[in-house]
Amino acid sequence: MKSSSFAYRRAATAEEAVALAREAGEDARFLAGGQSLLAALNFRLDEPCMLIDIGRIGALRGIRRVEGALKIGALTRHAEIAASVEIAKHLPLVAQAIHEVAHPAIRNRGTFGGSIALADAAAEMPACALALGARMHLLGPDGPRRVAADEFFLGLYETALEPGELLTHVEIPIPPAGACHGFAELARRRGDYAMAGLAMMLGPRTGAGRDWARIVFFGIADRAVRSPSAEAAIVAGAAPEECAACATDGLDVFGDMNAAESTKRHYAAVLLRRELDRISDEENRV
């Protein structure tokens, strides 16, 4: 299992990477952490003509506090996310979810941006980005642009990234005071892609309900997906069982080898009810 031949170029800047990509055409790939790409190459599932190594572009690495948000460089490694005090303080959802991403050696090498750009339907980070209403900073031949998470994840491994366009940063708004998060996933083994997962942000309490809610399921559809029905039910103050009952209403759910469509719908509902129960218990205790 050896990959087919390809050319290799190392880019010193994001601009150079984008220029190289334009030159090389559609069969070139950006190489960041490589933890998914190189596995696909080894299986010859993908046979690019060129890899453009962006791994050493320092400007794309690190976590910065900006106005009301954290701006995470695309090349920031999962291990750096896990170790970040800023993330732990401001984005506890990400801090919790990052530990479910694969295994230590993968987290040492894999990048936050790589995970977002790959958009695996069962991956944790795209789900978190969606739940947190992240904004993706892209750089293409025509310059930079920003795309909201809601418009970024389009389908199975499909994103708003145009050919040759590079994800440079992910800007995640810091949730307002009174918001809380929930996260849970069901995987057959530690570190495996989840059979079903839930990443959610709930706005401050308003009576029985919530100011807003962003309920995201992963591992059940072609991408991380929000559940409008569950969000509406939560905002309206419905009981956890009722919110869970409509968890996947209107969503296109797809089965896989570990769980059929109906099982995934069941799991989504169980995860949501359990997390809502937990939050409710904790808030009542305070």
């Binding site: 069901l186 057959r188 059979m195 570990n258 769980a259 059929a260 109906s262 099982t263 069941h266």
Partner: peptide, 12 residues
């Protein structure tokens, strides 16, 4: 598997 157990339980 978890799914087979759920089937045996009639949950899915």
């Amino acid at each position: 598997t978890p799914e087979r157990i759920l089937r045996a339980l009639g949950r899915v």
